[in-house]
């Protein structure tokens, strides 16, 4: 290690520290500070203590709905979504001719901009000319009209379907980890007479515990950031049926111009993220192994 180069250390760290302070740190300070105030667009900032927090949790129905939705989505995403991704990874890891193309195809919905994915679904689910209604009409022979994103009965499910099955990222991450398992291990298991299913269950999956935990974290926390797809499809409606926290923050800032309330929601969103992270790490016992 080279010593006595304090000058260079400072110079090399300065750009990162400055940018972090400007974009993240200052925002966090504004966020937390103003969450205890009243602040509308153009108004003066006045201190009000916990008023915003109390209001959100006791009176704001749409906010409570957005928390509930976010929770349901976190739960679905960290279970079904991850399971889909892991099973595909297990099937593709058998190194068949189709492994690589299927992996690529499965990742396409993850690699395009979420705004484009939202738009794709908006078109596919369109009541008049959408693919889904078109197919149902074709099969039943009758004109089928279902307004997937505006009908309170189907809106939640329709939004969920834009991300729940698309676990290409999980597949890619699990497959990358699998490739590091030593061939000898499989060889030994096969000699002992293990079927490929037994190998998957008793050798591969236990070794994948950490990466699956990571995938659960990624899947769960991604539900705290879904603004684009919601915005492209339902904007949180009908009512607050598909409202999530980012969408509600956006609305509070730009439709209601209530800055302090939006920032209170932001603080709650960050706390929620930390709690979710902590819970998953505990469930997967990930804390011990990391340095």
């Amino acid at each position: 290690m080279k010593k006595n180069n304090t000058k260079w250390v400072i110079l090399f760290l300065a750009p990162g520290v400055l940018l972090f302070s400007f974009v993240m740190l200052s925002s966090l300070l504004v966020l937390i500070g103003t969450s205890f105030t009243d602040w509308f667009i153009g108004s003066k900032i006045t201190f009000v203590g916990l008023k915003n927090y109390i209001y959100l949790f006791t009176e704001d129905k749409a906010f409570l709905q957005s928390i509930k939705n976010t929770f349901v989505w976190i739960l679905l995403q960290s279970t079904i979504h991850v399971t889909i991704g892991v099973t595909v990874a297990l099937l593709l890891s058998k190194k068949k001719w189709y492994s690589s193309p299927v992996r690529t195809i499965f990742f396409i919905p993850n690699i395009i901009s979420s705004a484009a994915l939202g738009m794709l679904f908006l078109c596919v689910m369109n009541p008049q000319f959408g693919l889904i209604n078109g197919l149902v009409s074709r099969i039943t022979g009758e004109k089928f009209i279902q307004n997937w994103y505006n009908d309170p009965k189907t809106a939640f499910l329709s939004v969920t379907l834009t991300w729940l099955p698309y676990a290409g990222l999980v597949t890619i991450l699990v497959m990358a980890e699998m490739s590091s398992i030593s061939e000898d291990l499989f060889e030994a298991a096969r000699i002992d007479g293990a079927t490929s299913f037994q190998i998957d269950m008793h050798i591969v999956l236990p070794l994948m515990k950490n990466i699956i935990g990571t995938c659960v974290i990624l899947a769960a926390t991604s539900m705290l950031q879904k603004l684009d797809v919601i915005m492209m499809t339902t904007s949180g409606g009908p009512g607050a049926r598909t409202m999530n926290m980012p969408m509600y923050i956006y609305k509070t800032v730009f439709s209601n111009n209530n800055y302090s309330l939006a920032n209170t929601q932001g603080v709650i969103l960050i706390i929620l993220g930390v709690v979710v992270l902590k819970v998953i790490r505990t469930l997967f016992r990930m804390d011990k192994e990391e340095e």
């Binding site: 760290l13 990162g16 200052s26 504004v30 926290m245 920032n263 960050i270 993220g273």
Partner: peptide, 23 residues
């Protein structure tokens, strides 16, 4: 410094919409 560089991962971007807009 290491903490600072990883902090971005646990902050959902939506939380920062208003502060960044104002700054």
């Amino acid at each position: 410094i290491t903490l600072m560089f990883s902090l971005g991962l646990i902050i959902p971007g939506a939380a920062l919409i208003q502060p960044l807009y104002t700054t």
